[in-house]
Design a protein around this nucleic acid. Sequence first.
DNA 1: TGATACTCATTCGCATACAAATGAAAAATG
DNA 2: CATTTTTCATTTGTATGCGAATGAGTATCA
Lengths: 148, 148
Amino acid sequence: MQKSREDRQAAAPDYHVDRQVGFFLRQANQRHVAIFANAIGDKLTTTQWSALSKLKEIQPCSQNQLGRETAMDVATIKGVVDRLVKRGFVATAPDRNDGRRVVLSLTEEGLAVIAANVGAALVATEGTLAPLTSGERMMFLELLQKIC
Amino acid sequence: MQKSREDRQAAAPDYHVDRQVGFFLRQANQRHVAIFANAIGDKLTTTQWSALSKLKEIQPCSQNQLGRETAMDVATIKGVVDRLVKRGFVATAPDRNDGRRVVLSLTEEGLAVIAANVGAALVATEGTLAPLTSGERMMFLELLQKIC
DNA sequence: TGATACTCATTCGCATACAAATGAAAAATG
DNA sequence: CATTTTTCATTTGTATGCGAATGAGTATCA
């Protein structure tokens, strides 16, 4: 059946950005970033924290690999690593087997700053999920993972 | 009861960034932005689309008000509006009653670009939620709204 | 009315985020 | 072994995103 002119014209007025997933995803992320920044003591951003935490798990590794593991673009991870190196949390060294690679590893300060902020990171997670009950949290995390 | 040395040292290794909400929220948002960019034809970003859509609902309005309605910082909405003005989608005019305000409104081109892309925006929403069943979508949106 | 507080828009600095291009090095292919 | 393809790191350009500061205009209220 062909749609009438009214039907097609009525489509636009019914659209509301503030009911779309994207609108909520952006805001939820914003809220989490704010909560994290507030909880963390050492001026670390969420991405910097991700890079540090992941690096601890998989070090030593190349810059691009760390980017892939933390879902960051090559240009993005470059900037993040640069700032972490500048602050003395991450050390770089040339790879003897591969002339292209830069091998990343945590410094003592890096390990220390992670240890000092794990608690705060967990508090941030808790704060972000605070509006949800225990059951809702499990359900939410499950569904959220599915759309990643 | 005092925690043993082992307990305290075991705390850090148990932490995994890639199991935290923040990690998923960032990725889910990334995926949606990518899907949106792919679906939309007129090189509009998700934030630009939000601004345009919301402006259509509440125009005429001040720049800061549009920012509040779309959950954007004053500095952020400034840049977004500037680009939309530059492309001829939004018009600015001084407020006669309030010397500080800049009154925003949609141009003909702005209205046209909205009309031309509402369908694509819905496709993007659909694509983002594609991994979920109909029931899961409702549940997810409900929970997501709670943590905004 | 006059001091104070608030709001609006702008600007600066910093930190993601991605597309796209580049050059160097390694891997895969014939 | 030489060509092609990949991979790695870097750089440029554009677009959010927020904190903080500023100046201009408005509102409040003593």
